[in-house]
């Protein structure tokens, strides 16, 4: 088994954190993982993205030519990556700021208003964690417990309130997408 996922959005939306936290969770679950960030002469407000591969065997290439999952936090990312997604793949999009929808009819798409939900929770910065709640529920790659534990260990020495708001945000995203 091998899964590949691309996370993409504006720099500052926490897309690299989404990728590292998933990779960390999958590692804790005993999987082989690779995490590959986009890097380069990026400009402020430009796009950032990363690719996570998760497998039960050695991973050859950390690049995803046909990702199984795509998570887009802004509209340019949707246009850049939607046609790479494998047939029967899954797209998660941040419907708070993306008014367009995927033009693909052969993929499953979930529109999650994670920006609005974050606003309701009183912290717009947790939009990425809300999206991860939806992603973890639908992908089932790791359990919520393992994911949240990984998230906490990555956030490390940050303030105590952070773990709490992250848990709330995760639960909100998890509950938003229906079974």
């Amino acid at each position: 088994m091998i899964f590949k996922a691309i996370f993409s959005g504006f720099g500052g939306q926490g897309v690299l954190m989404m990728g590292t936290s998933l990779a960390h969770g999958a590692m804790s679950n005993g999987y082989h993982v690779t995490f590959l960030p986009s890097y380069g002469a990026e400009i402020r407000g430009g796009t950032a993205n990363c690719t996570v591969a998760i497998a039960d065997e050695e991973i050859a290439s950390p690049v995803a030519s046909e990702p199984d999952y795509l998570v887009v936090m802004n509209a340019p990312s949707l246009f850049s990556f939607q046609n790479k997604v494998a047939a029967k793949g899954v797209i998660f999009l941040n419907s708070s700021i993306i008014s367009e929808r995927s033009s693909r009819s052969d993929v499953q798409a979930y529109a999650v208003p994670c920006g609005d939900i974050a606003q309701d929770l009183g912290n717009t910065r947790v939009a990425n964690i809300i999206m991860m709640g939806a992603f973890i529920k639908k992908s089932g790659i790791v359990t919520p417990d393992i994911y949240l534990k990984s998230l906490e260990s990555i956030m490390g020495g940050r303030k105590k309130g952070v773990a709490e708001i992250n848990r709330k945000a995760f639960a909100a995203g998890f509950d938003y997408v229906k079974d």
Partner: peptide, 10 residues
Amino acid sequence: DGMMGQMMEP
């Protein structure tokens, strides 16, 4: 190379 430098693995 750049891929090895940037990529994360356990």
